[in-house]
Simulated scan of single mutants.
Amino acid sequence: MARNTERRSALADAGIRVLAEQGARGLTHRAVDVAAGTPRGTASNYFPSRDDLISALVGRIGERLTPDPTRLSSHAARTPDRDLFADYLRDVVRRLSTDPHVPLALFELRLEAARRPAVAKALGAWRQRAFEDDVAFNDESDLPGGRTEIALFHYAIDGLMLDNLTAPIDSGLSVDAAIDELVDRILR
């Protein structure tokens, strides 16, 4: 297997774009090579099977959604309260909104997980780890809410992102106002 991590990341980023733009059926090694501008066979060299490619995309999405340590440290100096919790949620939405290909690819993977057990296994393991990390972070930071509230926020943010990326309803709420309402209602 090829070891160039920069090229591997670039190929995974190209795969994320392909997945977001063409859906799971359009995700082929050849399509990734074309999107990355690499010679034919390069993606296959880095990701020998479709399952390897999908696992790499899941991992890369995780990397791209990882919080910025400096932003986390600036929040850590604040009092752990509802306002800080809302700011953490805004940061999650900001990271998801930075490149629409990332959440769209993630939604495509979730749909594919309903059809393919291997995708469900890879994506499910990553999502569960991310959820457990969020619960642990919330506990360690003394933020309000617990496991159930974190789950409710995951569900709500997924819906908010899907709505914003597809056919948004005109609720009259900005994203910030929606987050404030979610925090107020879930953390009563």
Rank of each mutant, 00 (worst) to 15 (best):
T79K: 14
H101W: 11
H75W: 05
E108T: 13
V102N: 03
P100E: 12
A105P: 01
R71T: 13
L104W: 04
E108P: 05
V92Y: 06
R115N: 15
G124N: 05
R129V: 08
P67C: 15
R90Q: 13
S97H: 02
T98E: 12
A114Q: 14
L84F: 02
A118V: 12
A114V: 14
R110Y: 05
L106A: 12
P67I: 10
V93T: 01
L106G: 05
P117I: 03
P100N: 14
G124D: 03
V93N: 00
R115Q: 15
V92E: 10
A76F: 02
P67T: 12
L84Y: 00
D87C: 00
L84C: 00
L106M: 14
V93Y: 01
A122G: 04
L104I: 08
T70Q: 15
L84M: 04
D81R: 11
F85S: 02
L89M: 02
R95N: 05
V92C: 08
T79L: 09
F107T: 00
D91H: 08
W126F: 11
R110H: 07
D81K: 09
A76G: 00
A120H: 08
A86M: 00
D83C: 03
V102Y: 03
A120W: 04
L96N: 06
A105Y: 05
L123P: 01
A122M: 04
T79G: 10
S97F: 03
L111P: 01
A120E: 11
D81M: 10
L104S: 15
V92A: 10
R115Y: 09
A105I: 13
R129I: 03
A86T: 00
